[in-house]
């Protein structure tokens, strides 16, 4: 985990948007899980917006969200999206390019 943090770019301020479907237990679990990951690995340099697609369908449409839950990394570029219950911490960090995974994948 430490290696991931050291290899990030200097201007690493993360802007994340999480789309969940309603306030069912699964949604709450996902939000909780993601917050924990963020606090652990990028405390103070992230911004997390949680969107309930029932409440704001227009936002979901704007971002082309089909699956729920979906985590959208708005910045830094490139944009990434992860669908699923976000329980696999290591994979999420890789996908968010806290390590540059995309180029080598």
């Amino acid at each position: 985990m430490n290696g991931s943090r050291t290899s990030t770019t200097p201007a690493d301020h993360y802007c994340l948007r999480l789309f969940v479907a309603g306030t069912v237990p699964r949604s709450l679990r996902v939000v909780e899980s993601l917050r924990r990951i963020c606090e652990t690995h990028m405390a103070g340099r992230y911004e997390l917006e949680v969107v309930d697609i029932y409440q704001q369908p227009d936002l979901a449409e704007r971002d082309g969200i089909l699956a729920a839950p979906t985590l959208l990394k708005v910045s830094p570029h490139p944009e990434r999206r992860i669908s699923g219950d976000l329980l696999d911490e290591g994979r999420i960090l890789r996908s968010l390019q806290i390590e540059p995974v995309a180029e080598t994948r």
């Binding site: 789309f19 699956a67 729920a68 979906t70 990434r80 999206r81 669908s83 219950d85 994979r91 999420i92």
Partner: peptide, 12 residues
Amino acid sequence: EIEETGEYDLEG
């Protein structure tokens, strides 16, 4: 564009 981890649905 889409990566998957764990369960999800197409509620969107």
